[in-house]
């Protein structure tokens, strides 16, 4: 019908429908674009790979992903080619510099933003065959609450929401949290605050978000939504420099404060998911 569906009667709302082996799948999302979602996905993947895990990052930001730019990787074969039957799935998976695997959507995926039922089926089929090969699959979703994002998130057991302390980013993060709570009956959402200027600011923001949720959303809810603060990533010029060089932080400046915070994040993500999935 349109690019944006009406989620309440949409089957993206039902996570159970989505994926059998979704326990290893983490959706990395954000309320607003430009808060560093793809940067977090790529660098978190590299930190997880360093911990000895087999990691796949799947670009679920159909048609809009910057994953190729962040990783300086321009594969010839993409998810789009797999969807159209031009290529085999194995051939679309590339090794990223950080020792993890990536599957990019390709710009041809724009037309799938409508997410026809057969596209969802294709997507699920691909996920079912991919997930067993990895310890963790990160879905780099689009920003906001389009049906593509909701669908991608529905395939994941865990949601990692990236926000920055900026007011518009927080408002959009809050809106996304509300939707995920209401439509997917999620009980917990993991939060990471990027571009934090002082230690502790991120924790304070997550606490603030939780208080607003408790007051306006959780008060009559049978499934109170809990936010789990996963960490802060400090504002760090090393990040901008790494992005300009199109390198991962671990390559560009492994000792910088942002890189250290991502290493900590990886350890938290590992224990959350691996325990959960076992």
């Amino acid at each position: 019908m349109s690019e944006v569906s009406n989620p309440p009667q949409d089957d993206t709302a039902d996570p159970v429908l989505a994926l059998k082996s979704r326990s290893k799948v983490i959706a990395v999302t954000s309320g607003k674009g430009g808060v560093g979602k793809t940067f977090v996905s790529a660098n978190l993947a590299s930190a997880l790979a360093k911990r000895g895990l087999r990691v796949l990052v799947l670009d679920a930001d159909l048609g809009l992903a910057n994953l190729d730019v962040v990783l300086n990787l321009y594969p010839k074969i993409t998810l789009h080619d797999v969807f159209t039957g031009k290529s085999k799935l194995e051939d679309a998976i590339y090794k990223a510099p950080g020792g993890f695997s990536v599957l990019l959507a390709g710009s041809g995926m724009v037309e799938y933003s409508r997410l026809a039922p057969e596209v969802r089926d294709d997507f699920l089929r691909i996920m079912e065959s991919l997930v067993p090969n990895y310890d963790i699959v990160l879905l780099d979703t689009g920003a906001g609450i389009s049906d593509v994002v909701l669908f991608a998130v529905s395939m994941a057991s865990e949601v990692l929401l990236v926000a920055t302390p900026e007011p518009t980013a927080l408002t959009d993060a809050y809106a996304t949290i509300k939707v995920l709570g209401a439509q997917q009956k999620r009980q917990s959402i993991r939060v990471v605050i990027n571009q934090v200027s002082r230690t502790g600011d991120g924790t304070a923001i997550t606490t603030q978000l939780q208080q607003v949720l408790d007051r306006f959303v959780n008060k009559d809810s049978e499934h109170p939504l809990k936010l789990i603060h996963m960490g802060d990533i400090p504002a760090d010029t090393a990040v901008r420099q790494a992005i300009m060089k199109r390198q991962l932080l671990a390559q560009a400046d492994p000792g910088c404060p942002a890189a250290l915070s991502i290493t900590q994040l990886a350890s938290k993500v590992e224990s959350a998911v691996i325990k959960h999935g076992a």
Binding site: V4, S5, N6, P7, I145, P167, L170, T171, Y174, A175, K178, V179, A182, S197, R198, D201, A204, Q208, L209, Q211, V212, R215, F216
Partner: peptide, 28 residues
């Protein structure tokens, strides 16, 4: 479609920015 974030919610979300220590914003 989408969720509106009400003025009350916004007020509470940014309450700390408005009522906190006015110097802290600059310091940050």
């Amino acid at each position: 479609h989408g969720v509106a974030v009400s003025a009350d919610e916004k007020g509470m979300l940014f309450g700390h920015l408005l009522f906190g220590d006015p110097a802290s914003g600059d310091a940050a």
